[in-house]
Computed example of a mutant assay.
Amino acid sequence: MKRSRSYEAKVALLEREKAYPVREAIELLKKTSTAKFPETAEAAIVLGINPSQHQVRGTCALPHGTGKAVRVLVFARGEKVREAEAAGADYAGGEELAEKIQKEGWLEFERVVATPDMMSVVGKLGKILGPRGLMPSPKTNTVTMDVAAAVRELKAGMIEFRADRAGIVHSIFGKTDFTAEALQENLVALIRAVLERKPEGVRGRYIQRVFISATMGPGIRVDETDLLAAAQRKG
């Protein structure tokens, strides 16, 4: 694929095959952003797992958020609807919202929360919500009676992650207009969350390689030893 001169100039800033210390990698991510608007900062975490045997899935509260507004839909009834709305949910309700999704193809939201008693309704939307990664789950704290806490966490920058069929976790961790310190703290928080979800029985190196990039920029390999040391430090 033919690349623009701007992109090639950004690539020239990188040393091929080099794994950069965390802060240097973050600085390079900001420098190699090619768009005229703040791009999303993305991470690809290659895990030493057998995807057919091990599932890695969880949530992470990014200290500095994602840099984007998140529209939250809550499936609930009665007082829980009012609690969700008070916490900042963009939409809250029951069967009427499920019907709107089924009949009108309405998908003007990025995250979905449900109380356990609403899962019989939400389950019927599996073929619509599932492929889009919108299905609520107890594993990601999006099936809960504490809908207010779930909404606040999602609005504040809670993200979901999961390993794909190749054993790679792809996740956002901020925007390129964040400070380098904020991006580093978000990335370290993400790595900690992935470490906490290490499946039992995994042998050898769990986190094998980590790459970061701006949405339209080149991939930058992060020194895993430096990154893991930062993740294991307290505070």
Rank of each mutant, 00 (worst) to 15 (best):
V188T: 08
R221C: 04
A19C: 11
T142R: 00
E27K: 14
V122C: 05
P218S: 08
E79P: 02
V121I: 11
R152G: 06
V112K: 00
V121G: 03
A19K: 15
M118Y: 06
A149N: 00
A25N: 04
A114M: 11
P38V: 10
F109Q: 00
D146A: 02
K10A: 15
I128H: 07
D90E: 12
T215A: 10
R205C: 11
E153H: 09
C60H: 05
V121K: 00
Q184I: 14
C60D: 04
G174Q: 15
R209A: 12
L227R: 02
I207R: 12
G88A: 08
L227F: 03
L195R: 13
P136E: 12
E196H: 13
A69C: 03
S213H: 07
A150R: 02
E160W: 09
E104C: 09
G174A: 15
F173G: 04
E39F: 06
R71T: 08
L134D: 11
D226V: 01
V22D: 06
M135S: 06
Y20M: 12
A44C: 12
A44S: 15
R16T: 13
S137W: 12
K18A: 12
T66A: 00
R77K: 00
Y206G: 04
T115E: 06
I26S: 08
G58H: 04
L187F: 05
V188L: 07
V112Y: 01
R205S: 09
L14T: 12
A44G: 05
Q208P: 04
V56N: 01
L73E: 03
V122S: 01
L13V: 10
K103G: 10
V56S: 01
T176Q: 06
V70G: 02
P63L: 09
E15C: 13
D226G: 03
A61Y: 06
P138S: 04
E85S: 13
V147A: 01
M158K: 08
L29G: 01
V121M: 05
V46L: 09
E24M: 05
T179I: 15
R57S: 07
I128E: 05
L183G: 01
R77C: 06
H54C: 06
E83V: 11
K100H: 11
A214L: 05
G93F: 12
E15I: 15
L62D: 04
P63S: 07
A214E: 11
M1T: 11
K18F: 07
Q102P: 10
L183T: 01
Q184K: 12
